Amino acid sequence: MDNLVKICGLSTPETLDAALSAGADMVGFVRIPKSPRHVSLSLGHKLSLQARGRTQRVVLLLDPSDEELAQAVEAINPDLIQLHGSETPERVAEIRSIFKRPVMKALGIAEPSDLQALSPYAGADHILLDAKPPRTAGALPGGNGVSFDWQLLNGLDRKVSFMLSGGLNPDNVAEAIRLTKPQAVDVSSGVESGPGLKDPARIEAFIRAARTAFAAARH
């Protein structure tokens, strides 16, 4: 998962094409009904076909049942399943076994003790570190446009591979990469003009800034 850029929450053919044209390594399709980025199974199917062979396709779910997973996998045929709820390490392993797809587990970070949750999830194929959602009614599990204190990752074992998310945008992604040295970055609301409305210019700017920062980090 070296130096990958993921654009999550894509929900229209036009904005997906913008992400693909800009060179996104991963594109995410959200299956969380209360999210403004939620896609139906039929739309997810069409978008997945559009992206097939051009990038890695990720489906994002929140504490999904086996039935919900089966429907999403059949319709979207993702290259990777992203779990953004309170799934246990055992549940992650079970999903990997049943659906034969790599799994990325998102973990919320707000304080140093939250990093202790990483070790039990060593069985996941990828770890995504996101800001814990605000403690407000209706807050989404991700895509809230807030970041956590990146300095918290100073004590993280550098052998731990992770994707950084939470509050990233074209203006701060370079600094985030410099400070935290992630293997990959993920953005959703940071490339939007409004909730769920992806901005092609911001997508391109984000990917360009991340690529430049990753290149600088290698030297």
Rank of each mutant, 00 (worst) to 15 (best):
T180H: 04
R101P: 06
L129G: 05
V5S: 03
F214Q: 13
A210E: 08
S40I: 03
E14S: 13
W150S: 08
I76C: 15
H45S: 15
L118S: 09
T180E: 01
L20R: 04
H45W: 02
V5G: 01
S97W: 04
R158C: 05
V173I: 05
V187L: 07
H38A: 13
Q151M: 03
S35V: 12
A24W: 07
R218F: 04
S35E: 11
F148Y: 07
K159S: 15
S193Q: 12
G196Y: 11
Y121H: 07
E94Q: 15
P13H: 05
P78V: 03
G28E: 06
S161T: 12
R211H: 09
G196P: 11
A72W: 01
A19P: 03
K6D: 00
A131R: 01
P182Q: 10
R91I: 07
R96F: 00
L4N: 06
G143Y: 05
L168H: 10
E14A: 15
N154I: 00
F148R: 03
P182K: 11
D2C: 00
G194W: 12
L62F: 14
D149T: 00
K181D: 01
R54W: 03
L118M: 08
P102Q: 07
Q82K: 04
P112A: 13
P133R: 14
A209D: 06
G155M: 03
L107W: 09
I127N: 05
L179E: 14
L60Q: 00
H38Q: 09
T15Q: 08
E90W: 06
P102L: 06
N3S: 15
K132C: 07
D2T: 09
V5M: 03
A124N: 11
V5F: 01
A51C: 11
P170I: 10
P200K: 04
S42Q: 13
L197H: 12
A139N: 06
M1I: 12
L49E: 15
A106I: 10
E192M: 06
I7S: 00
A19C: 07
A201R: 15
H45V: 00
L47C: 04
L156S: 08
P120I: 04
S193M: 06
L115T: 10
Q183R: 14
S147K: 05
L83S: 01
R218I: 11
L128H: 10
G143W: 03
P134H: 11
Q50G: 03
I177D: 03
L115K: 07
D199T: 12
D171C: 00
I127K: 02
V92G: 05
S21H: 11
Q50F: 02
P33E: 14
H219F: 08
L153A: 12
M163E: 13
T55M: 05
L164Y: 13
N77E: 15
I127T: 10
K100C: 13
R96M: 13
E87I: 04
F206W: 05
E67Q: 13
K100E: 14
D149W: 06
G196A: 11
L10I: 02
L16D: 09
P64M: 08
L115M: 08
A117I: 03
A117P: 00
E175G: 10
R57W: 02
G44N: 09
P13F: 02
R57N: 01
L129I: 02
E90T: 10
A72H: 02
A205I: 09
L156Q: 06
R101K: 15
G108F: 05
G9E: 02
E111C: 14
L60S: 05
V5P: 02
K100R: 14
G23W: 09
A176E: 09
G138K: 14
S21E: 15
K6S: 01
R37G: 01
